[in-house]
Design a protein around this nucleic acid. Structure first.
Lengths: 340, 340
DNA sequence: ATTATTTATGCGAACGTTCGCATAAAGTAG
DNA sequence: CTACTTTATGCGAACGTTCGCATAAATAAT
């Protein structure tokens, strides 16, 4: 099968220990021997067996990353950032997609744990039934960090201030003169949704915008619900919103589609704001005004935390991580002054 | 630290062997004992150590998946399919993003090999400098499959017939009366690009379309090059293409953006066809006509192959895998009859 | 020359499993 | 009641590393 340290040792007539030490450039071994070993190892195609190494060291140099659904751009962009950040510290990333399923979420974590990952990074479903599970996880010796806003829970979080981000979007609309603003989001309860919706509702109240209950559309999780909700609003006979704030960019794209299909234009007839700032925002028409989630910073911050915690004994006076970035509004071409 | 089989054995006053066997419901152990062991294991929070298991069994129940760039929708959608397919057979997937870098590609495979993955699934960069590397990989005892069209090489491939797919797109344009068709693709040389471009060039020749050398735009890999190329063509004073075939959907979105920015409409003024059929095609305006890559079938076929090969001794008369799916054109609303 | 110190290497256990083989206990046949 | 089979469990090695401790050889100090 594959070449082991023993094969090299046998070939050279030395002990496995010496080979092991030579390969990691241990000064106790003469330079001469070290070179010979490394040369032969290369020649024989030696590849260290990480499982054997892990068994004794209790380290895998791997971080488990649990996401909602890898096929969604937001998560895959984040995953790429996580992988890059981890790599800088010499860690690999094992990604698992829970598909927003609470049971799979637990199964994924179990799998990670069995694999002996050194740290855990979670974008949680926030399913009610998993709350105890998140709690148990926090008690474990392995470091865990969440990208969620788990305020009341005793867990480590790295997030953006979504209330602030959404508020910036609302302020932008106010400054453009909008007073008829709709909100499209997911029905599912999550910390993200709560913050973004709260900022919208507060803005409606604070700025004295028109209050139209139907202009808050919370639908099932479906890539097309932004499209459908916007189409309904805009094709109705009555009063129509002049601006629409979508809970994420994909929803906003759907809104843009609805606007275009009705022969209207973004932003002249309807302003649209998204949330996330996906890479493709720049490739679409019109380039979307959106709240930028700083994926790179989030990933690096979370990974740095995990890497620092890994290997340090867990103690009572460990500070809880609570890093919050303030997101920026990226103004592009999907928002314009309201001439009403 | 964590609970081991020995802890359970000690607690129950039996041997580790019996515990191990009880946990896998070995009939040699009395039902009574098995139950007691399983109950205690649950109570103690026992989690099997997959590294230890792998060391002896030489199996990790893991498949390594190497992609170009996980943050691109095409790859993340494919990755999700791969994970689902693998899971059906009890395998996990370790994803590594090479970022289209030949060196990282090799490093990724090395990392997989060190981790002892059971099978390897590769979306290769096709870098010239890695050709030897792909060859060596094929010689190894571990099963490997590619999503690339590696025709001349002695490797296992699961692909779609991209010539056929692109040809279907071209036929559609011809039937709509187009004669002025542009092609936008990546400059980088790859089997995918070659097939799609060849189908376009053949169509131009076979159908007697206008031959305008500038209408083949091969640019650097940049999410915005579809936009830029289309903008240049359409804003020039001279003859303009009535239809544009983009090598992938993201490029096609950029084309649509360029059309819209110039005050023109898709499909009334310019027809646009993409390739891939990303999920978001339905969320954008206009819903894109595109060639659908059957990701689910590709993933399932590749995984099935790997799973079957895993554990069977490699032999000379192993048939080489060469599965090719014929992709379908999905006609949506970005293509229309040419009234020229 | 003897002892102490340094330097270079090796032995053997350990990590948490699995698995072949042995053993002990119980059951069946003569 | 001996011999033979079946059933239930345990022993110990193995997987490929690493690491503490020992040993042997070489050098330095007395």
């Amino acid at each position: 099968m594959s070449v082991t340290i023993k094969d090299i040792a046998a070939e050279l007539g030395i002990s496995a220990t010496t080979v092991s030490r030579s390969l990691k450039d241990d000064v106790r071994i003469t330079k001469e021997v070290r070179e010979r070993v490394k040369k032969l190892a290369r020649k024989m195609g030696y590849r260290p067996n990480l499982m054997a190494k892990s068994l004794v060291s209790n380290r895998t140099e791997t971080i488990g990353f649990l996401v909602d659904n890898l096929s969604w751009s937001f998560f895959s962009e984040l995953a790429e950032c996580v992988q890059n950040a981890a790599e800088k510290h010499g860690y690999s990333v094992f990604i698992y997609s829970s598909q927003k399923n609470a049971e799979r979420e637990r199964a994924g974590v179990e799998s990670f744990l069995s694999r002996g990952i050194d740290g855990l990074l979670i974008f949680a479903t926030e399913a009610k039934e998993n709350e105890d599970f998140y709690g148990e996880l926090a008690e474990m010796s392995i470091p865990v960090a969440y990208f969620n806003h788990f305020d009341p829970m005793n867990v480590n979080c790295v997030t953006t201030d979504d209330y602030d981000g959404a508020r910036k979007a609302m302020k932008h609309l106010k400054e453009l003169g909008h007073r008829k603003v709709g909100y499209i989001g997911s029905r599912e309860d999550s910390s993200f949704k709560r913050q973004r919706l709260a900022a919208y509702l507060d803005a409606v109240a604070d700025y004295g915008w028109d209050i139209v209950p139907e202009w808050v559309a919370l639908q099932e999780d479906d890539p097309l619900y932004g499209y459908r909700a916007a189409k309904e609003w805009l094709s109705s006979g009555g009063d129509k919103p002049s601006a629409i704030f979508a809970q994420n960019d994909m929803l906003a794209f759907g809104v843009c589609r609805a606007v275009a299909e009705l022969g209207l234009r973004v932003p002249q007839d309807v302003s649209v704001i998204g949330y996330d700032d996906l890479d493709m925002c720049m490739s679409l028409h019109p380039p979307l005004t959106t709240v930028k989630i700083p994926l790179k910073q989030l990933a690096e911050s979370a990974i740095r935390f995990l890497v620092e915690r890994i290997g340090t004994e867990k103690s009572e006076d460990d500070v809880r991580l609570k890093t919050t970035f303030s997101p920026n509004l990226v103004i592009r071409q999907s928002t314009a002054r309201y001439e009403g």
